[in-house]
Design a binder for these strands. Sequence first.
RNA 1: GGGCACGUGGUGUAACUUGGAUAGCACGGCAGCUUGCGGAGCUGUUGGUUGCGGGUUCAAAUCCCGCCGUGCCCGCCA
Length: 638
Amino acid sequence: MQEYKELADSPSSLVKREFIQALDQTVRGLYGDIRREEGDLELSISVPRELTLGDISSSIAFRLAKFTHTNPGGIAKEIAKKMQPSEHISRFEDANGYINAFIDEKKYAALVLRDILKRKKGYGHSAVGKRRKVIVESPSANPAHPWHVGTLRNALLGNVISNLLEACSYEVEREDYIDDLGLQVATALWGWLHVSNKPDKKFDQWLGELYVNVNREMQQKPEVKKQIEELNKKIEDGNSQEAATGREVAERCVMAHQETAFAYGIYRDVMIWESDIVRSHLLSKALDISASILEKPNDGKYAGAIIIKLDKITPLAKELEGSREDAKVIIRSNGAATYIGKDFAFHAWKFGLIDAGFSYKKFMDQPNGKPIYSTAPQGSPMKFGNVKRAINVIDASQAYEQQIMRIMFALIGHEEITNSIIHLAYGRVNIEGEKISARSGNWLGEGRNYTADDLLSEATKRALEIAQKSEKITNRQNLESISRSIALSAIKFEYMRISPEKEIVFSWQNALNFEGNSGPYVMYTYARSKKILAKADYTEASASKLEAEHVTRGYDFELIKKLAEAQETIEKACDEARPNVLTDYLLDLSSLFSKFYESMPVIKGEEAKGFRLALVHSLTIVLENTFGLLGIEPISEM
RNA sequence: GGGCACGUGGUGUAACUUGGAUAGCACGGCAGCUUGCGGAGCUGUUGGUUGCGGGUUCAAAUCCCGCCGUGCCCGCCA
């Protein structure tokens, strides 16, 4: 609450505060010494169901009734009668025990529209982050196959969360963890060395198919399996020709991943390669700082390994009690770190607790004009990491490991780090009711694959079919790029409208649906708005007067109230890491615009024309800003 | 054995964190709307005992307890 006061108030929070202050004064006057709870007025605020009931309401009478032992209806009536109008609130009524306030629509319309037209791209943004640095890790795809429709969920979530954090004034580092060690890379590498090293299509797609084939071969031929395991050891050890080739193959695969990312408008700052973590002194430093909580048994099942006893962890996370094992291995008896070991070390680096001495190289240029950097065996030092907060976009099945890793920091006296590591656990994407298995290759479909690339090309194809029939598109040369924008809006919206924690069953029908609650539907709203402005020869100068006195209590005002909620919507989406808050908001805006559009002429709005144009213009600004956070580029005709 | 997540009309979902007025939206079904600022749209209608049972409360989809179902996790794999 303290933070809000440091901000320029958004229009809706300003009015809310006015209402709360007026309520506070009245309630004190009437029931002065009654015991109340901290923040009860704040929590009592909501929006009435029916438009005719008012614009903002409080249920505080129900709470007061508990102490006065009278009925809420009477209390509400008494309060509403005594309430004094304020700057933006003109009158009060009571109904069903609620106290309803009516906003002065003329003053409020002027306030809201002026704010939007003044702040433009900055409208709705917030200062809560106070420039604190946060690192977002996503999507950490295996460099052995292409992004599938599940990887895409991760990448899109990571992108939107990063955008939201930036809009809330955090300084965001977009990081990708590349696991170039392990069996998946060894398997692909074996294929490269023994089957084919002549890619004849997009590299990740080609490598992925090779990977699937080798996996199949490995199941049947034990000698192949053995060779791959030996190869795996060599790349884990580093310093061999095989390790160098493995890195090379993985880098080519990651470059192909980036092409997919770019097609989806996803960019990042830095990639951290697992082999570089192993090569650096990060692990031994991590062991040094955590020595007090680790053990190295000489006998028993963990002999020779470095472990952490689970009974150290469970007092801080009782949900981990009852585990089948009593310890978690950090360093294996052969000296290699486990996943948790590496992840703990990595997070100690993220928070600047230890220095990895990484060297970096420029990995590739990105279409957004900024290069992407990567850790590398040879390169120069750069400043990454050292953050105050880390967001890990990782699917929900890894909650257990994430929890243990987080708690290790509290055990070594860094509770603030434990609390600043946020596991954004999202639900799996299944295809046709079964789990995606990159290894078995069920992401390979008939004709079209369940890859991010094929999804985009299928959606673009579908959008083009529809766009070709559209008579509204004047620039026919742009059909291709328009279709692509529509396809991207459809895909991104479809992914983001579902709460992250829910599992998704991927279906082509849903993914290619451009009607109803969809990206194209909101894009359509935007295109219509833009066309109205163009037809009316609308310019900013003509809007300078605003003429907000022409507002009615119809859908124009409803739309204005919704536009006013942009900032709190963005803060909520960011705080809760729920992009569906944004898609819901877009649908609300679109639906209100449609109602406004059906009921109130704009260009033929006579004396209200100027005001309504300014409203439409304001809507396009808010749509653009919200689309921007979702990584969607709106288009003016479709 | 223990834990986590999910369960909302035929289907996909929102609201659950912070209890509040008639559970919102879309798809599907049915019936309409175009000489009008864009029909990828709009309007009306159909369909819900919010998995089940208890509890707390003036008030429960929301909080608590117990069940049931589905998925995931508890590896010296990552």
